[in-house]
Amino acid sequence: MIHIDFHDETNSVDEAFVDLVERVIQFAGEKENIAGENELSVTFVDNKEIQELNRNYRQKDYPTDVISFAMQELGEGEVEVQNEDLPVLLGDIVVSVDKAKEQAEDYKHSLEREFAFLALHGFLHLLGYDHMNEEDEKNMFARQEDILNEFGLQRS
């Protein structure tokens, strides 16, 4: 079971989108065999806010669509500490509502699919998926498509 803490800093995200994101992440968690109690947050922001995060954490000064902050990645010299009585904190996913709207229009698919895609993309990053090289990118994007298709959100 994954507990998801939602924050809408734009005050513009419809409850139906929040519910969809919740269901997609839970579905992906099952597909990825996530066991035990897990926790993550999803925050909806505007382009200005995500540009700030992108600049501060990734040294890229432009708005992006989704950023993830994984809590389970061990840095150099860090030791994994796991208390079985506590939920595993997977991390935070930040989605730009502005970018989601732009991209839904650009790709000519529904805003629902774009929100689901971005949340799933962020979630897979929290699980350790990456796209730093071509092979990893192929794996990650294939996994996203498989999960979205199985969930019933095919590309239109």
Rank of each mutant, 00 (worst) to 15 (best):
V42F: 05
L53Q: 01
F69L: 11
K48R: 05
G91A: 11
E39V: 03
E84L: 05
I4T: 10
E49F: 05
E114C: 14
E30P: 02
E84K: 01
E112Q: 15
E112T: 09
I50L: 05
E73I: 00
Y62F: 12
V95Q: 05
Q51V: 05
L118Q: 04
E37W: 10
E80Y: 00
D19I: 03
E73N: 05
H121L: 12
V45M: 08
E22P: 06
E9T: 12
F27W: 01
S68I: 04
R113T: 13
K48N: 04
Q82P: 03
N83F: 00
E52A: 14
E78Q: 11
P63F: 04
G91H: 07
H7G: 10
L89Q: 00
P63C: 06
V24R: 07
T43C: 13
T10E: 01
F27R: 04
E112F: 14
I67Q: 06
H121S: 09
Q59G: 12
L118R: 05
E49I: 03
V45G: 01
Q72I: 06
E37I: 02
D65L: 04
Q26L: 11
E30M: 01
I4P: 01
A116F: 10
V18A: 08
L89R: 08
E22M: 03
D19S: 08
R113I: 15
E84Y: 01
Q51A: 02
R58V: 05
D106V: 15
E105N: 15
V24S: 10
T64F: 01
Q82F: 00
V45R: 06
I50D: 00
I50W: 07
F44V: 08
G29A: 06
V66H: 11
I25R: 07
L90N: 02
V18N: 01
A35D: 14
I67T: 08
N47A: 12
D106F: 14
R113W: 14
D5M: 14
D98W: 08
K99Y: 05
L90Y: 02
S41R: 10
H121P: 04
R55P: 11
F6I: 04
A35K: 13
F17C: 06
E102S: 13
K101Y: 13
K48W: 09
Q72K: 00
R55E: 05
L89I: 10
I93R: 01
Q82H: 07
I25F: 06
Y107T: 15
A104Y: 14
R113K: 15
L86R: 01
D46E: 07
E49N: 02
N47L: 03
